[in-house]
Each structure stands twice: as structure tokens, then as C-alpha cells.
Amino acid sequence: MLAQIHDYSQISPLVSACLRPGVLTNCVLTPEDYRREIAAGTLLHLQWAGGLVFLRRREDFDLLNFYLNDPARLPDWQPARETVLELPRRGSGASPAAAFWETLGFFPLLNRVRLSRPKLPETPADPQAEISLAQAMSLLTSSFDPRTGCLPAAEWLAEDFHAGRVLVKTDGADKLIGLLRYSRGSAAEIRHLAVAPAFRGQGVAKSLVAQFNSATFASRAQVWVREDYAAARSVYENSGFSPDGWISTVYTKECTQNGSTDEDFK
């Protein structure tokens, strides 16, 4: 049965119990991720003899992270809402967890490839235009599928603004025409790059990636890009990024009438 996580102290015992040889997992959540979801009341979990699932609740769907110890043991659970999960892997073969999720009715939606860039020599950064949070959120939500776009909540985007992790391009009259949002960790990672439709093909994305390179020259950088988005790949590959061998498949499963309901949550 799905249960909500109310306290961060619940996390480690659940995860540690799954950290056994042969465990399969995807997109590991950081302590900060867990804390943020718990604070928002959006973190649920399901534990069964074969593994552990975390669901991060969004408005119309759930995002799924898992630890599988015994893929032969299926959970007595079917999603009640559309559920999306991502299976990253090194190399072109299928993820060892793919068969498990396909057995549960998940199907592949799209592939992403990871492009990486080494550290760079320092270059001067452009001054940043000022735009509103609402403008930025509007461009992001109109540019990405909420199920697969990893869109930030407004308060998370505000944190990124405050920390200087949102780079923007305007038309000179305060109209936002492009935005690049990134994170800093062991590598700087481009999380979103969006250009307003009327301004595509005019070098806006290339300019934003150049700004990103200036801002993050001192660290390695990476970005996940859809395999079929040739124009986006070209921008990155002309800005010092190249494929590093990591591929990811996004899977989805639409809800079933027999799935768990909100009333099942403890």
C-alpha cells in the first residue's frame, strides 16, 4: 500500500534496506530532493518483498524512483494516476530494469542522450537582463511537457533566480525570449533551455549556452537532450559538448481503473 513520507528520518532505513548486491535503481534522489518533496507533502512510498518505490506527486501524474532487489517479485500495486519513470544506462543496451517495468505495463516514451563538456578557460560573462519570475515560469511551462520536462515548482525556480542559476535573453524591451536554467553539483547541469517560438533559429540558444559556459567554466558540465531534437543537439555540440555514452529512456504508464486510490494512503 502506498504511504506518504512525513519525516526525513524515514528515508534512510527504507533505502538502506535495499542497498544489497545486485540492486537496480534509477535517478537517485539527493537528501535535498527528499527534504523538498517531504516539505511539499508530495513524497509517497511503496515497499514490497522485491523492492521499494518512491512516488513524487505532481498535479496530474507521479514521478517514480525505485530500488529493485528481486525483479521476479512484482508489487501488488498498479498506479492510479499516470506515472513516469526514467531509466538511464551507460551504453546502448537495454536497462536491466526495463523488462520489470514493461511487465507492469510501462512503455517507452522517448530517449535522451547525455552530452558533456570539460572545464574551460575563463571568459567574461555578459550582464544579465532583469525579468520577472512569472515570465520565466510562463516560458518554461509553454516549452516543456510537464510529465517529462522536470519542471521546477515556482519556489524552486525562485531559489535558482536568487542563486544566479537562471540565464536569460530579452528582446531589448524586457520581453523574455530565451532562458537557460542550470544546477550546480559535481558537474554543472543544464536543466532547461527554452526559446520563444518566434525567436527560434536566431542564435538565442547558442548565446545562452555561451553564457552558461562563461558562468560554469571552472567545472565539468552536462546536459540531457532528447535524441530526436537535432537542432538542440547541434547547439550543444557546437558549444563544446559531446556524447559521453549515457542514454536514458523515459517510460510512462497511464492510470488503470484498478489502481490504488488516494484513499489508500496512510
Partner: peptide, 14 residues
């Protein structure tokens, strides 16, 4: 330097 990832870390820790 991206030589190992969080998924590798889970495998190693296990």
C-alpha cells in the same frame, strides 16, 4: 569528473 555516477555509487555502496 563524471567517471562514476550516482547509479555506480549505489552499486558500490551495496
Amino acid at each position: 569528473d563524471g567517471i562514476i555516477t550516482s547509479l555506480d555509487i549505489v552499486t558500490i555502496v551495496s
